[in-house]
Amino acid sequence: MDTFDVLIVDDEADFRDSLLKRLKKRNLNVSGAGSGEEALAVLKEEPVDVVILDVKMPGMNGIDTLSAIKRLRPLVEVIMLTGHANVEVAMEGMEKGAFDYLMKPMDIDELLYKLQDACKKKRLNEKRERPVAPRSGSAA
């Protein structure tokens, strides 16, 4: 798969930087943001295909950031990546349109595959005549 643009949003600078480096080595265009607010600012300015988003962050939390991203850029795919193993929070994220909810520690190759799958989904959605809104999971 060709290269694409990834934004890592995590308040833990060490984690963010090391993931950034490792993904860059795999030829992705990667940038980082330390908070939800910062991430939204980046999304307004730069092209992003897939966002890797932490759940627990000071300020705007991951779930709120996810909703804001989906409002701002409905086609951008969001992968939650967190140390927070909680079924309810994970389900909330999925219902709000997250592509996946992954838990640290994450194998880098597996993460790369997830990123590729998410990006492919975005590309396919872009080709369709109009973007498809994320379905709400609470359909009944």
Partner: peptide, 11 residues
């Protein structure tokens, strides 16, 4: 984490 992961995948 296993419970969460399995729920996410089934979703």
């Amino acid at each position: 984490s296993q419970s969460t992961a399995v729920a996410v995948n089934v979703f």
